[in-house]
Design a protein around this nucleic acid. Structure first.
Lengths: 246, 246
DNA sequence: CACGTTCTACCATTGAATGGAAGCTTCTGC
DNA sequence: GCAGAAGCTTCCATTCAATGGTAGAACGTG
């Protein structure tokens, strides 16, 4: 009944507080936050107050808790993907201008593609890939482009544990998709994410030819023109790669 | 010699670790981090390891510390400016397309404009306003646009404490700039940030007519055409405001 | 106005956090 | 190839910061 009845450290708790916000939710009541983080109200209150004194959280009147502007600032200034995003932005804008479609940039994290940047145009088809959103490798062209250029070992490990919760896709199918993507140098996926759209993505390699990201577009099925899209994407991807260090 | 010789809490230390990264630096050696955060090496090590187990930091081989991808993800998914950025993006893209210049979006934080989103075009003039970058109110058109539409009290408080480190600008000059911006409905600043550029910004008001952001462009001095720019910005700002809640 | 809900403050108890020291690994210069 | 340095990692006895039940304040509601 003293120092942590639940047996977790302060650090654990700080993390749980930050993680307590459901996707897309920017504000939470103190009580609900304590609930979600699994903390006694008084402990949650103390923790939140401390963090908000430093600006990492923002404890408003009436117990409204938000992530702090300062936290957003710190993370975006020093984010590990900063160099990548800076290098990619001009090329993404070029692509968007020329093709007039959604463009996105993703990195591999676990068995998912994490979208780190995106440009969408009003009037262009819906793009499910939100910034800071995730998609499983096997149902995103970006994910396939990324995985298809990883080491044999990692791909084997991935296929080993692969399991589709919907049961529609087998590891064999994914293996085939990856092999195809690896051979062609780009990944495509039609009508999977959204029935009316087509996703195409190419790997972005750094100077050591390690695949660090995937550059992709999402276009309406009707406007599919591989022969125009792929070279444009590959050219841009090379341009980005040249800007990167490593 | 025991629980915190320096008299600071675990939370203080976690914050100091995250804050230890200098602007734009994405990776730090453990020793340097401990140094910057003012922590004993062993304490820094323990803290970093704990945080990296949760994915908030990333402790690589050889003691290389980065901010975690997971932290970036959490913060960007739930950031307090999420709604603002989402509402503004399409309009910013429109502006960029039509005017073909740098567009940026800022909020007021303390006595500074914090840039939360930006679109730049290759070939357009340099834009000092980086995402997650800051600029003092009095040397950015965005800052002036924001401050000029705050409450009388806040403006008075601002001018009260105002002091220009370079000594070039007086509180009186700033008062004049703010009054002008308030009256005209936009703020402009020529050759201050950069000798060859002109910044123009307008306030973005939510439905309650509270100024929550500033929408601005940076154009080459030569291409200055106020009569074309201001109406475009104001129209976009109104559009953004209509999308916002509150 | 009384009741329910949620936020905030207090404080005695105690185990989690601390950091010096020692071991380990990696790198460098000779 | 070896001595030395520099930096990373682990260990563990000491002790004070963290804990959370409780009580009170503030708010909203029927």
């Amino acid at each position: 009944m003293a120092n942590s009845a639940s047996g977790d450290s302060v650090v654990d708790r700080v993390v749980r507080v930050i993680e307590a916000f459901p996707e897309g939710v920017t504000s939470l009541q103190l009580t609900e936050l304590a609930d979600r983080a699994g903390l006694p109200l008084s402990s949650a209150h103390r923790l939140v107050r401390q963090l908000s004194e430093h600006g990492l959280l923002d404890l408003g009147a009436g117990g409204t808790v938000r992530l702090g502007l300062r936290l957003w600032e710190l993370v975006n200034r020093n984010s590990p993907t900063l160099a990548l995003r800076q290098a990619a932005m001009p090329f993404m804008e070029d692509i968007q201008q020329v093709l007039n479609q959604n463009v996105n940039l993703a990195v591999l994290d676990g068995w998912e593609a994490l979208f780190v940047e995106r440009l969408s145009r009003r009037g262009s088809v819906a793009n499910r890939a939100r910034i800071a959103g995730r998609m499983p490798v096997h149902i995103s062209s970006a994910g396939l482009a990324l995985m298809s250029h990883q080491s044999r070992e990692l791909q084997a490990e991935y296929l080993e544990q692969f399991e589709d919760p919907t049961g529609k896709v087998t590891a064999g199918v994914v293996r085939h998709l990856l092999a195809e993507a690896a051979q062609q140098g780009y990944a495509q996926l039609a009508g999977v994410v959204d029935p009316d759209t087509w996703g195409i993505a190419v790997p972005v390699m750094n100077r050591k030819r390690r695949t660090v990201a995937a550059l992709g577009v999402v276009v309406p099925l009707a406007e599919m023109r591989l022969q125009a899209l792929v070279p444009a994407l590959q050219t841009a991807a090379r341009g980005i790669g040249r800007q990167l260090g490593d």
